[in-house]
Design a protein around this nucleic acid. Structure first.
Lengths: 152, 152
DNA sequence: TCCAAACTTGGAATTATTTTCATTATGAAA
DNA sequence: TTTCATAATGAAAATAATTCCAAGTTTGGA
């Protein structure tokens, strides 16, 4: 069940952040709210350009960067290959499955994510990121099943 | 005071990991042990190619990737622009200063870094990463000094 | 010394992202 | 609605990081 935010609501959200609510921006924001799969710029482009053939990859990058600057999104640099984008809901960590490549949200309490500690070792904290790499639940299951059927 | 590990010692370290101790590999490992500044492949290349003019950037990447696979190093994907490499000493977190670009080691106790928890939400943990972004101690000081001299 | 396997090399290819700049859309004021 | 300055869009080119590839070189065991 996807949450379908009306474009009107998204419009006020952009205005509240001091951004001009253009059609392209609304669509990018809508996509990110509906698809919390930590997509790349390329993935967003592929989906949106189907409906909006004139949509340019440059606009996607422009939009994502301005959203980042205004704090609407956060960037996930977990793979080292590309930047992935996450609509800012509540603070959370991430898990990258090295088998299937999925990035999964991890909710855990950490003294830094709630924003109470603003300084560490004298440095001013502005963002907190935490992530794990390993094998996800689903891939572990598949692995176990395969072993069984192979009689290993 | 840089720790200068003899190449002989590094050699046994590589052999212990099942890697052929070639000159290039020894030099990359030596560089990483001496320069814990989280360098990029490019930075390592620049330094080493001064002394070894035939050194290829591909060799740097090959070497870093095989070191990663063997667990000699860990990769830091904090900037989103490039991968930085860290010789594996004790587990720690990182702080990226958005002013000067430095990556600073942060030692903090976290229930996940010590390797006691091996599973989270059903997913098998193989790596734990934590990082902060913000303004480092030194840049904060400089900022304060500048404000003072400007009579702001 | 010989040999196969492993490693290195440099150029080309690939991929992600940014920059450039001309065109177009936007919204406030006339 | 018209005007106009400003900001956003889009296509192409530029840049930067990383990988691929094929040929040559090194390595260490037999």
């Amino acid at each position: 069940m996807k949450i379908i935010p009306s474009l009107e609501k998204l419009k006020t959200e952009l205005i509240a952040r001091g951004l001009k609510p253009t059609f392209q921006r609304l669509k990018v924001l809508e996509y990110l709210k509906q698809n919390k799969t930590h997509p790349t710029a390329e993935i967003i482009y592929e989906h949106l350009s189907r409906k909006i053939p004139t949509m340019s990859i440059t606009t996607i990058y422009n939009t994502l960067n301005i959203f980042l600057k205004k704090g609407l999104l956060s960037a996930i640099t977990i793979t080292g290959k590309e930047i992935r984008y996450d609509y800012n809901s509540s603070p959370h960590h991430h898990f990258l499955c090295t088998h299937c490549g999925r990035i999964i949200d991890i909710n855990l309490t950490c003294p830094y994510t709630d924003g109470k500690k603003k300084v560490i070792a004298g440095h001013r904290i502005e963002e907190v990121h935490g992530y794990f790499k390993g094998i996800c639940k689903d891939c572990l299951k598949k692995e176990a099943k395969q072993k069984k059927s192979n009689n290993v």
